[in-house]
Design a protein around this nucleic acid. Structure first.
Length: 721
DNA sequence: ATAATCGGATAGTAAATCCC
DNA sequence: GGATTTACTATCCGATTATT
């Protein structure tokens, strides 16, 4: 009912009232409804407009009226287009009039070859990566705007006869979407951000880079290639902006016409995209000979920010700008800044009441959906960050998950929601336990096994999501399993039947899953998650290495299997994002002297596995007998291979195991290597330790590999006791 | 027999242009 | 400024195809 009233907002005002009432007009025998629901529209069946409508009810599908109607009426200058078409027909006449700028000079209109020209650095990806994935429930996706399909035609017809002056007049569809997201502008709650000039009032010779020395801002055409990269590879994990708006080249015609927050936003998202994708994909040539392009964008963002009152300018941009700055700094492992910007975007989201379900009811349904996505992206990011850096969390799973827009592939949001569900399992008690602020007694086996079960239950139906998302969800799930397991170990919870995975060899099983997931994947599906994916894999590998260290000398099939998984993980890390991961060397040095790995990663020797032992394992990982509690001097336990191992001997090893993946790793006190950052939802930083300290260890730890932050926290905790 | 799909007819809307 | 033209989107009929 509520939706029905809301839909009236979208309905046009001048519709004949009689139509929906069934009294036929003078000639029309059919009475069209004001607005068909999303499903009926897609199905091309008559909708009765109630909610849920009869066809949807009959088909047992969810009825919604989310899709905003497109703007009607012609776009662009008609006569100019006619002229242009005529000129094209008369192509020979203008063929000789190629200007000195040539087609490569995009001028103030932006890059008109955004998906076709050879000069477009990502034109190549357009055809492949930018294609929307198949739409599962609704048939072919319509997520590519009609005007996007239209643009290349203009370009191609312009062809060799490109002429700036003419091009100006035959300019493409005027930008008519005033808001951040496609809306009916008359009731948009989103601020109107880009007040583009009414017409193409552009300098006659268009090359802002050279002809406008007074121009402070980066030229408009700088952005589009990176925005294309974003939509090609990162949108799946951050589906928070509208393709139709941000892939429309008219937006980038004149950067000076952009509002400050839009400009800042574009700078921030470009900076984050560049650093996140890094060398995993060919990127456009640098904008500046001396300065890295991502740094240039980030600096430009911060510079522009000084020019307006960004604190009072509360809009979704206020949330997204610091979010992408967070991703930028996170990927650069500048943690203090990353943390600052993450907090900033959370603060803005609170200012927008995005954590309050009630606030969404007041919004236009489409706007509400975009905001839900943004909120959940923040939620996921914050949770991942909290876990990785052992920070507290501020956001809660207090608002409904976003729904799939009719215009979109359901696949896309399916993956996003899946990830959100996964992180919902990382509840406050998980974070508290991980931070060490939860009483140990609460981190018991029942709670842990329940948490592990939740993680498995949270992310299902992965076959319906894209490879990139699948990678994210699967690896994240295994990574969270590893963390939960480490929590259990740190609380002395290892028992034999393997309930909740609390077995010594559980990480080997997890590593097997990860290897299975990553082995068949394309590199880009893995790489587009940025440094966060490297971190997770390195955490998992680190934990696996600890387990193997703990069982050193064990020649059982499980152990050898684990060795092989570790080898595969290290190999994956050796070629991530087009280069060797910075986490590889520390892992290798951790492995030094163990299992035959050498520090030099030039050759990663395959561990020799005898067929006999492999055959005997047959995927069946033996478990440790009986529940044990960890206390020095107690009875012995068995390694997966059945080796006797006394607690006195292994206590140190287990202590190491309990320290969140990289604990005990020698690189932790190396500045600049302690942090991880931002892949989309995991623009998060490495936290050195996730364990629950006990006082006996603190002095030794504090003097050793513990980071400053840990020391402060430790002191705080000790003072509190 | 029934349900689902979708090409395309038809209608409505609004920008662009014409006309005075 | 108002009328007209044009270009666009929306609805949904009904032929076709798929499913039970």
């Amino acid at each position: 009912m509520e939706l029905e009233t809301q839909q009236q907002l979208h309905a046009t005002t001048s519709e004949p009232q009689s139509t929906s009432l069934g009294s036929p007009g003078s000639s029309a025998s059919k009475a069209s409804l004001k607005r068909a629901c999303d499903c009926c529209r897609k199905r091309k069946v008559k909708c009765d407009g109630i909610e849920p409508c009869t066809p949807c009810k009959k088909a047992s599908i969810r009825c919604a009226y989310l899709q905003a109607p497109k703007k009607k009426g012609p776009k662009g200058l008609r006569s100019a287009r006619v002229l242009h078409a005529l000129r094209t027909i008369d192509g020979t006449a203008s063929a000789s009039q190629v200007t000195p700028f040539g087609p490569q000079q995009h001028g103030a209109f932006g890059n008109w070859e955004w998906n076709s020209g050879p000069s477009s650095p990502s034109g190549m990806q357009q055809s492949e990566s930018m294609l929307p994935p198949p739409n599962v429930p609704y048939g072919p996706s319509v997520s590519v705007a009609p005007d996007q399909q239209y643009l290349p035609q203009l370009v191609s017809t312009a062809g060799p006869s490109y002429h700036p002056q003419l091009q100006q007049q035959t300019s493409p569809p005027q930008p008519y979407h005033p808001g951040l997201f496609r809306q009916d502008s008359h009731h948009s709650n989103w601020p109107s951000h880009h007040d583009l000039p009414p017409g193409p009032e552009l300098p006659p010779i268009i090359s802002p880079t050279h002809s406008e020395p007074q121009q402070q801002r980066l030229p408009g055409e700088s952005f589009l290639p990176y925005i294309q990269l974003f939509f090609g590879h990162m949108f799946q994990i951050m589906p928070i902006i509208d393709r139709q708006i941000f892939l429309d080249a008219t937006l980038y015609r004149d950067s000076n016409a952009l509002s400050s927050d839009m400009y800042c936003f574009l700078c921030a998202i470009c900076a984050a995209t560049i650093v996140q994708l890094d060398t995993s994909i060919p990127q456009p040539p640098p904008l500046h000979p001396q300065k890295a392009t991502d740094d240039l964008f980030a600096e430009e963002c911060l510079r522009e920010r000084k020019s307006y009152d960004w604190i009072d300018s509360v809009s979704p941009f206020s949330v997204m700008i610091p979010f992408f700055l967070f991703a930028y700094y996170g990927n650069h492992e500048q943690n203090a800044k990353a943390w600052h910007y993450l907090q900033e975007c959370i603060t803005f989201s609170e200012n927008l009441n995005m954590d309050d379900e009630q606030s969404y009811a007041k919004l236009d349904p489409v706007e509400a959906q975009w905001r839900r996505r943004l909120y959940w992206l923040l939620f996921i990011t914050e949770r991942a960050y909290a876990v990785q850096r052992r920070k507290h969390t501020r956001l809660h799973a207090s608002v409904q998950l976003p729904a799939v827009f009719d215009s979109e592939d359901a696949q896309l949001l399916g993956g996003f929601v899946n990830l959100a569900n996964l992180f919902s399992a990382v509840d406050d008690s998980f974070v508290s336990a991980w931070r060490g602020s939860r009483r140990q007694s609460l981190c018991n086996e029942a709670w842990l096994s329940n948490t592990q079960r939740q993680l498995d239950g949270a992310a299902l139906a992965l076959e319906d999501v894209s490879e990139t998302q699948q990678m994210d969800i699967s690896v994240t799930r295994e990574w969270l399993h590893v963390l939960a397991w480490q929590m259990g170990v740190s609380n002395g919870l290892i028992w034999g039947r393997g309930e909740g995975g609390m077995r010594l060899d559980y990480p080997i099983e997890l590593a097997r899953n990860v290897v299975e997931i990553t082995t068949g994947a394309t590199a880009l599906a893995l790489d587009s998650h940025g440094i966060g994916m490297e971190q997770k894999l390195s955490d998992i590998a680190g934990c696996l290495a600890d387990v193997l260290r703990c069982t050193a000398g064990d020649t059982s099939a499980t152990f050898l299997e684990g060795k092989q998984y570790l080898h595969t993980l290290l190999q994956t890390l050796s070629s991530m994002r087009g280069k060797e991961s910075r986490y590889l060397k520390p892992l290798m040095s951790k492995m030094e002297g163990l299992m035959g790995y050498e520090l030099s990663n030039a050759t990663l020797p395959l561990p020799t596995v005898t067929t006999a032992t492999m055959a005997s394992s047959a995927g069946d990982i033996p478990t440790m007998p009986g529940p044990v509690t960890i206390s020095e001097g107690e009875s012995d336990f068995l390694t997966p291979g059945g080796q006797q191992c006394s607690f006195a001997d292994s206590f140190d090893m287990l202590r190491t195991l309990s320290m969140s993946g990289n604990l005990g790793m020698p690189y932790l006190d190396v500045p600049g290597l302690q942090t991880l950052g931002g892949q989309g939802e995991f623009a998060a930083l490495r936290r050195e330790s996730g364990r629950v300290y006990d006082e006996g260890e603190t002095k030794a730890l504090a003097g050793g590999w513990m980071g400053e932050e840990d020391e402060v926290e430790l002191q705080e905790r000790q003072a509190g006791r």
